[in-house]
Every structure is written in structure tokens, then in C-alpha cells.
């Protein structure tokens, strides 16, 4: 049969991709502080320990504040950029877009240290505010990628029709463009949220004493007896991420269908 070999390869590849995630719940419910086989019994104690850890809860709070702010900010920046590139021709477009998309390839540590030195030099104190600055920067290219495809499938004559029927450019944006790109915006919000929630290096450099969730998790890796709790936490996070992504994907596809376009692929 055609492609049988490819199919087997693809399935092996998926196993490789999912192997670490698949282990998470196994150890999260394993009744042992040592993370290895054989398993020694079922327990939910690691999950219940999560609720008693005040520094964890504080980190969750910080992370949520950061992630929500970042998703809103990055999506706003994404909307401006996507609208500008899909609708207008102007000088220096390539160069400016190249700069805006640069964080996609720039190692995060470079972004983290450069921001850090400047902030220190300015005498600014580190907090979740500075983390928001950095996260917004790295999430924006992703929101632009998503929003670009949403704005691209907009027919320009729809806007002209609304103007022609007496609306101003601002009300046209509200009545026509916004509803049509809304699925893209929702999916962009969710993606930016996920990116921020998951980011470690920038948060580690810029959070000061206000640790975010990944910073907290990284610190726990040094204590072997804390690892099962992290596994439990990881299980919850994975479920959360998958839910968010599924919603995002749903909205992305619905947006494409709504505008009558053809699906061309994933998030990137």
C-alpha cells in the first residue's frame, strides 16, 4: 500500500513527541517520591498537597496576571500589525515587520539579558510588570502570524461596502472587520496566554522576587521530594493547555470557514 512506511514512521514520531507527556499522569498518581519504574501504587496525595503550598498559589496568581495582561497586549499589537501588513503598502514594511518578528528566532536568553541590563541601568525594580514587558515582546510574533491569516481572508470590498453604506472607518472596523476576525482574535488571545504561562527564561531574569509558575517549578526541581507534586501540577497544566489549544484551534478554523477561506494549516 502507498505510504505504509510513512504511516508507521509518523506514528513512531508521534510516540516520541508524546512520550514525556504521557508519563506525567503516571507519576502524578504514583505513590512514591522516587520518579522511576516500577510503580508503587495509586495516590492523589500529590494533588492535594498542591493546594497547601502557599508559594505555589502565589506563583499561580503572578502567572495568571502576567498571562492575561500579555494575551491582551500582544493581541492588540498583533491586530495593529496584521491590519497594517495585510491592508496597506508602505515604505520600510519588510524591514519593520522583520524586526517585529525577530523574537521568533532570537534566543530568549538574549532578550532576557538585554532587557535586564537596560532595566537595571535605569534603576527599575524587577516585578511581574517587567515580565509582562518581555513576554508581550515574544508573544507578539505569534499573534501576528495568527491574525495575519484572519485579516488576509477579509475581502477589501466588504469594508468599502460598509463605508459606501454610510459608516465611518471606525464603525466599519467595529461592525464588519472585528466580527469577522473575532475567531482569530480569540485564538490569538489563547495562544499568547499559553506562551506566557509557559515561559521560563525571561520570567527567571525579570521577575525579581515575584516568581511566576515556571520559575517556581524550576526551583522545585532541586528538591527531589518535591518532584511528584510538580508532576501533579504538570498534569493539570497539560490538561489546561490542551483545552485552551483545542478552543483556539476551533476558533481559528471557524474564522477561516466564516470568511469562506480554505484551511492552510496550523498556528505558525
Amino acid at each position: 500500500m502507498r505510504g505504509r512506511g510513512f504511516q508507521i514512521y509518523a506514528i513512531c514520531y508521534l510516540i516520541f513527541l508524546y512520550a514525556p507527556i504521557a508519563l506525567l499522569p503516571i507519576f502524578a498518581f504514583n505513590n512514591s517520591t522516587v520518579i522511576s519504574f516500577p510503580l508503587s501504587g495509586f495516590t492523589t496525595q500529590w494533588f492535594s498537597q498542591l493546594w497547601t503550598d502557599t508559594s505555589l498559589l502565589l506563583a499561580v496568581k503572578h502567572s495568571l496576571i502576567v498571562a492575561v495582561s500579555v494575551s491582551i497586549l500582544a493581541t492588540c499589537f498583533g491586530v495593529f500589525a496584521a491590519r497594517a501588513t495585510t491592508r496597506y503598502a508602505f515604505p520600510m514594511k519588510q524591514g519593520l515587520m522583520g524586526m517585529i518578528m525577530l523574537p521568533l528566532v532570537l534566543p530568549d536568553i538574549i532578550i532576557a539579558v538585554s532587557l535586564l541590563v537596560v532595566l537595571m541601568q535605569m534603576g527599575a525594580s524587577l516585578s511581574i510588570l517587567t515580565v509582562i514587558l518581555g513576554h508581550t515582546l515574544i508573544a507578539t510574533p505569534f499573534t501576528i502570524a495568527i491574525l495575519n491569516s484572519a485579516f488576509q481572508s477579509l475581502d477589501k470590498s466588504l469594508e468599502e461596502a460598509a463605508i459606501d453604506l454610510g459608516e465611518t472607518p471606525a464603525s466599519t472596523f467595529r461592525l464588519i472587520i472585528l466580527p469577522l476576525v473575532m475567531p482569530g482574535i480569540i485564538s490569538s488571545l489563547l495562544i499568547a496566554f499559553s506562551i506566557s504561562l509557559d515561559e521560563y527564561i525571561i520570567a527567571a531574569f525579570l521577575s525579581g522576587t515575584e516568581a511566576t509558575l515556571p520559575v517556581y517549578i524550576f526551583a522545585q526541581f532541586r528538591f527531589p521530594n518535591k518532584v511528584p507534586v510538580i508532576m501533579a501540577l504538570g498534569t493539570i497544566l497539560v490538561c489546561l493547555s490542551i483545552t485552551l489549544l483545542t478552543i483556539a484551534e476551533y476558533f481559528r478554523r471557524r474564522g477561516i470557514a466564516k470568511a469562506g477561506g480554505k484551511d492552510t494549516g496550523g498556528f505558525l
Binding site: L17, I21, S194, D198, E199, F221, M231, V238, S241, L245
Partner: peptide, 9 residues
Amino acid sequence: IPFWTSYLI
């Protein structure tokens, strides 16, 4: 999907 799930973990 795996790409978006907790990198550290």
C-alpha cells in the same frame, strides 16, 4: 500540541 505544553516539565 506537545510544543505548547509546559516546556520545563
